[in-house]
Amino acid sequence: MIVEGRVVVVTGAGRGIGRAHALAFAREGASVVVNDVDLDPASAVVEEIEAAGGKAVANTDDVADWAGSENLIATALESFGRLDVLVNNAGFLRDRMLVNLSEDEWDAVVRVHLKGHFAPMRHAAAHWRAESKAGRRPDARIINTSSGAGLFGSVGQGNYTAAKAGIAGLTVNAAAEFGRYGVTVNAIAPAARTRMTEVAFAENMAKPETGFDAMAPENVSPLVVWLGSAESAAVTGRVFEVDGGRVSLADPWRHGVVEDKGARWEPSELGPVVGRLVASAPAPEPVYGA
C-alpha cells in the first residue's frame, strides 16, 4: 500500500500501459482518475478497480485541449478532494518517413504527446502552487512518458521522436520550476507491447521456460507507482528507461569536450577542431532502425 490515500490522475488509461498504471496504483491504495477519450475502456478500468475494492472515476477529456485538461484536474479535486500524482501517458502514432510526413500527421502527434503533457501539468501545478502559498505544502508527483525514440531517435517516427524528446526536456525544466511548490517531476521511457507497438514487439512474448512476458505493459507500472509515492521525494528531473525486469537511469545531455581559442575562430580553422572534438567524444547511441 505504498500510495495509500493518494489521489492519482492517469491519462490514456483505458488501455495498454496507462491501464496497467491505473490498476497498479489502485492495488497499492490510491484513488484513481482514469482518463481516456473513449468512455468504454475507461469505464471498464473503473469497474475493474471497484470490483477489487478500490476507488476510481472515469474522465473522457481531451488532454491536449486547454479547458479539457483543466477539467481533468478538477475531476480529481471534485471526486476525491485532493490531487497528489499526475501520470501523463496518453499518446498515439502516425508513423511515416520524414520525407513523406504530412503537416497534419506532424501536428496531431506533437499536439497529443507534447501539448497533452504540458496542459494537464500546467493546471495541476497551478493547483499545487495555490496550495503551497496557502501554507498546505504538497508532496506531489508528476510522471511523464518519453520514449527511447525521444532519447535516441527512431527511423520513420520523426514526429513522435520530436514530441518525446520535447517531453524529456519539459520534464527537466518543470522539475527545476516546480520543486519550490513541493512537486517532483520525472519521466519514464518505457518499452512494452501496446496497440502502438504490438507488431514491433510480437516476437517478445512470454518465454515458455519462465512464463515471464518481458513486453507486458504491467512491467512498467511498478516504477511509476514508486515514483508517485512519498518515498520518491528526493528524486526529480530524471528520465528512467524501463522494460521487462530492467530499470536504468538515462544519461542527460551534458557539456562535452571543449577547445577554446580565446578569440573568434576563422571558418577555415574549424575543420581540425571539430575533428578532434568528435574523436575525443563518446560515440552517440545509434538511432533505432538505422
Rank of each mutant, 00 (worst) to 15 (best):
E209S: 15
W265S: 14
V199N: 01
S154D: 09
N204H: 06
G179M: 07
S147T: 04
W265E: 03
L277D: 11
S248E: 15
E105D: 15
A30E: 09
A134F: 06
V155Y: 09
D84F: 10
Y181W: 15
M121T: 14
A20M: 08
A140W: 02
V242T: 09
R246W: 00
G158Q: 06
I2R: 15
A192R: 00
V274Y: 13
L39G: 02
A206L: 08
Y181C: 01
D40K: 13
A124P: 04
V257P: 10
L101W: 07
A233K: 13
V45L: 01
R264P: 11
H117A: 14
A191E: 03
V287T: 10
E231N: 13
G81Q: 04
E48S: 12
F152C: 04
E70K: 15
V37C: 09
L83P: 04
V224F: 03
G16N: 00
H113P: 07
R27L: 07
T145P: 04
E203F: 04
V258T: 15
T75L: 00
G245F: 01
E269D: 14
V3W: 01
S147Q: 02
F201W: 06
M97S: 12
P272S: 06
E241L: 05
V99Y: 08
A149I: 01
T11Y: 01
A30R: 06
I49M: 03
F212G: 07
V33I: 14
G262L: 05
L170I: 12
V239E: 09
D107L: 14
Y160I: 12
G153E: 05
A281G: 04
T11F: 01
N71V: 06
L249H: 02
A187C: 01
E198Y: 09
